[in-house]
Structures are given as structure tokens and as C-alpha cells.
């Protein structure tokens, strides 16, 4: 099964590009005192909150909701 890091970046990449998607997840991981590879399903709410915070101003609420739905379905 793909790691949470891989799932999130795969969903975000078409929107933000690889580097920004990568940075977005790594920043979330660092804020939780972890590395990106150490992220687990329990960390998903915190990652989603961070994605919502940075993406909502540029993507819109409904788009972010859809992206998070895709992330959740990919992660579970």
C-alpha cells in the first residue's frame, strides 16, 4: 500500500506541481515533529487542515473539499 505521503502528493501534484505538493506535505510533517515518511493515517486530519489552509485561497473551498475526499479515499 502506498504511503500517506505518496497518496497526498499524488493527489495534489496535478494542481500544485510536484515540488509544492511535496513541500506542503513535508511542512505538515515537520509541524507534527515527524518526517514525511513517518506520516500515518492518524496524521491525516492535521495534514488536511494544513492543505485546507494553504490551498483554499487559491483553489476555492469546493475544490479543496474534493481534493481532500480523494486523499481520504486513497489513504484508507
Amino acid at each position: 500500500m502506498a504511503s500517506l505521503f505518496a497518496v497526498v502528493t499524488e493527489v495534489l501534484e496535478p494542481y500544485t506541481g510536484r515540488i509544492v505538493a511535496d513541500t506542503c506535505v513535508r511542512a505538515s510533517a515537520i509541524s507534527m515533529g515527524k518526517t514525511a515518511d513517518e506520516l500515518v493515517l492518524d496524521d491525516l486530519p492535521a495534514i488536511e487542515a494544513n492543505i485546507r489552509r494553504v490551498l483554499s485561497p487559491v483553489a476555492g473551498r469546493s475544490t479543496v473539499d474534493d481534493l481532500l475526499t480523494r486523499i481520504e479515499s486513497g489513504a484508507r
Binding site: 496535478p14 494542481y15 500544485t16 506541481g17 515540488i19 509544492v20 487559491v58
Partner: peptide, 9 residues
């Protein structure tokens, strides 16, 4: 340009 062609851009 940091989005590397990402849809948001």
C-alpha cells in the same frame, strides 16, 4: 511558475 504547470496556475 513554481507550480510547474499545475492546474492552479
Amino acid at each position: 511558475r513554481h507550480l510547474q504547470g499545475g492546474r492552479l496556475g
